[in-house]
Design a binder for these strands. Structure first.
Length: 272
DNA sequence: ACTTCGACCTGTTGGC
DNA sequence: TGCCAACAGGTCGAAG
């Protein structure tokens, strides 16, 4: 399930093969994703070239002369660069075909992803404009979290997964970061000291960087643009290990549901 | 203003 | 073996 490292891995994978390439056609086989795919891209994109492939939060931004194609992978979305004569499979919903014979193919069994066409300023888009800072940017600091969390009662895990606070921290990396920082996931955000937020922010940045380096986390089906899985799963310290022994203290790892999400923690290393 | 919860969707898994 | 219910998960938007 794509979180920020998986989206960044995808971005890096499609940047080189697609940059400066010219779109020949767009094929929409299934229009119904999280929101209807804008049909006008079939007419708008051909003839345009890819100027850059950027990322904001978990959105991939394909910049072209007339605007930007904004793609979200949702939970099961995947973008691959394939030869344009490769037969599409069941969940291959959209192809962006290029004049050089390559094809950017969007696959998404659960169809929680999305496509948007933005003719104007990206930052003004309603899905973008209220997003918090990038977790790997300088503006994401312990002090920032501390200030934003005062007076808030919701569990720290849900706080760091709130895209208005910081983007890109999904369930897997939230669990990992809290474990590394020694913070109980259910701890009310407003009760956490500045020093502990400093530690948490360092953990979030370190884990995201390591995960990007490993090409993301493949739990089941994530694949990067060249079809390879991510290797960060081998480095997960807490996620998916409920019932097993903590790597630090050998206590049995517990799980509970928090905000309808699977939450895993060590009851000894992560105190309330 | 803050928080919770339902909705979207389908492949996989566990229980009977 | 088959069937069904539960679950997984990102994120928006409605309801509390």
């Amino acid at each position: 399930m794509p979180e920020l490292p998986e989206v960044e891995t995808t971005r890096r994978g499609i940047e080189k093969p697609l940059c400066a390439e010219v779109v020949q056609s767009v094929i929409i086989r299934h229009q119904q994703l999280r929101w209807p795919v804008p049909l006008e891209i079939e007419a708008l994109l051909p003839g345009q070239s890819i100027l850059a492939v950027r990322r904001r939060a978990k959105y991939l931004l394909l910049e072209m002369p007339a605007g930007t194609l904004m793609i979200h992978l949702g939970m099961s979305g995947c973008l691959r660069v394939v030869a344009n004569d490769l037969e599409p499979a069941k969940h291959d919903h959209i192809d962006i075909v290029f004049e050089n014979g390559l094809c950017l193919r969007y696959t998404d069994p659960r169809r929680f992803g999305s496509f948007h066409w933005l003719a104007g300023d990206i930052e003004q888009h309603p899905l973008i404009q209220h997003l918090g800072p990038e977790p790997l940017s300088r503006s994401f600091t312990g002090d920032y979290c501390y200030q934003r969390s005062r007076g808030r009662k919701l569990p720290i895990k849900q706080f760091i997964m709130d895209s208005k606070v910081v983007v890109g921290v999904g369930n897997i990396y939230a669990n990992e970061s809290l474990f590394q920082a020694g913070i109980h996931p259910a701890q009310p955000a407003g009760k956490i000291s500045k020093a502990r937020f400093e530690k948490l922010v360092i953990a979030i940045k370190a884990i995201l960087r390591k995960a990007i380096k490993a090409g993301g986390t493949t739990l089941k089906d994530f694949r990067s643009s060249d079809g390879k899985p991510g290797y960060f799963k081998q480095q997960l310290q807490i996620y998916g290990r409920e019932g097993e022994a903590c790597i630090h203290c050998q206590s049995t790892i517990k799980q509970q549901r928090l905000g309808q999400r699977q939450t895993v923690f060590c009851p000894r290393c992560q105190r309330l």
